[in-house]
Design a protein around this nucleic acid. Structure first.
Lengths: 232, 232
DNA sequence: CGACGATTTGAATAGGATCAATGGGAGTGG
DNA sequence: CCACTCCCATTGATCCTATTCAAATCGTCG
């Protein structure tokens, strides 16, 4: 691990409050590795041997059932994933693959659990992180059950619009196939959903989406903090 | 609060390991209340003032968006709900209403958080509980995104079949309208889904469902522990 | 017995998925 | 630099799933 990576990880909310020697104990056996895109990091059903941290790049969480596949979340730096499985020492419920060239930190699960027992600040952070994850998952479920696919797309675009600085241009960070799976539809249907949004000022040019009538789009999407705002 | 209620709550996994005086501190300001059916206990958007424990009866967690409503979970005794909102001191993401006459224990959020800071065993239990909840939510999302409504119903029936002792008779504990919302469909569609399952040995008589061809039903449903098994 | 809500059934519609075919870059090799 | 290939994305046609609207039926409770 490069020495200048540690401070970045230290600043992760999950690790920020913990005692220095505990931090070192967690990190000593950890290793940081580079992966090309489309590498499967973990598979659902596997034992949760490592807590993963996306330091650079991006990671897709996906799952299978019945031969079908769906995307459950996209993880951007710097954030952890599969924390719950690690804490319960249970099989992963989702698989993960890199979307971009990525650097992933892997911390042996038992070290996470050991230090959790000992460091109250770390325990507190873990609870906060888990609570956020739980709530994000609840929001995803509401999004999926209460909205049509066009509404989900509209709300996704508005969220990206806010996060990317309300410039009127939204750049899709993931390809449309993956976006379709994330939004719970087929690629064909995503294409049609974009067309449906054209009258609301949504202009598609590859991965560059222009939003020219945000108020109209917002009226259609009816965004709701209790369904959309991530990380609260 | 009746004195003989405390031991039941003490046995809740969430409270089992904590020190006696901490348990008392959490419980002193708590109160246990009876509610008739269909009482709204909390509303999404409200501040999380109390951690709720279903001691008797049952509670439906539901949510709105866009004027639509859906059911996210049914809570049976003895279990907590809205733990994540309490821990983050954030607004509830879901509303809750009693389905049956119920007794609900309400613990002020700040007491939960205060004792959490102090009692490592309690912190550990909270993390386990939250992890389970997170994973259950992830399973629900997989269930919703990867299965058709007939498949969801079939898997629901098989789960109930197992939990009710594999007698061949499943009793629906909730009315069909609520079941439909839980499974993410309309009541009309639930009715039709039951008809679709008739060739697989599903016989409906009010709330009493007979399963006469469980192997056939299982073959259709293709249950998957990573999507179905609750509480792991 | 009558009223009301829950459930079921029917018919029409809408939302999405599937299948098939075409257009369009990005990267590769000549 | 250009042709070739491959994969992604789009479009069209059709099918299937699920919702909506309407009406009939059933059960339960006062």
């Amino acid at each position: 691990m490069r020495p200048d990576d540690l401070p970045v990880i230290r600043e992760l909310e999950l690790f920020a409050g913990m005692a220095e020697d505990n931090f070192e104990e967690v990190m000593r056996p950890a290793y940081l590795q580079r992966f090309p895109p489309q590498v499967e990091l973990i598979a659902e059903g596997d034992a949760a041997d490592f807590l993963h941290v996306v330091v650079e790049g991006s990671v897709e969480l996906f799952a299978h059932d019945n031969g079908r596949e769906t995307t459950l979340a996209i993880i951007h730096p710097v954030a952890t994933f599969i924390l719950a499985a690690v804490l319960r020492d249970a099989p992963y419920l989702m698989s993960a693959r890199t979307l971009a060239p990525s650097r992933i930190l892997m911390i042996p699960s038992e070290n996470v659990r050991a230090v959790f027992e000992r460091d109250a600040e770390f325990a507190r952070s873990i609870v906060q992180e888990l609570s956020i994850r739980y709530r994000d998952m609840a929001k995803s479920l509401k999004n999926q059950k209460l909205r049509t696919s066009v509404e989900r797309l509209a709300n996704y675009l508005l969220r990206e619009y806010e996060e990317q600085g309300t410039t009127g241009i939204v750049n899709l960070a993931i390809d449309k196939k993956t976006l379709a799976a994330l939004l719970g539809m087929t690629p064909e249907n995503l294409s049609r959903a974009f067309n449906t949004l054209a009258p609301y000022g949504v202009i598609v040019d590859g991965a560059k989406i222009s939003l020219t009538k945000v108020p109209d789009l917002r009226q259609l999407a009816k965004p709701n903090p209790l369904t959309d705002d991530p990380g609260t």
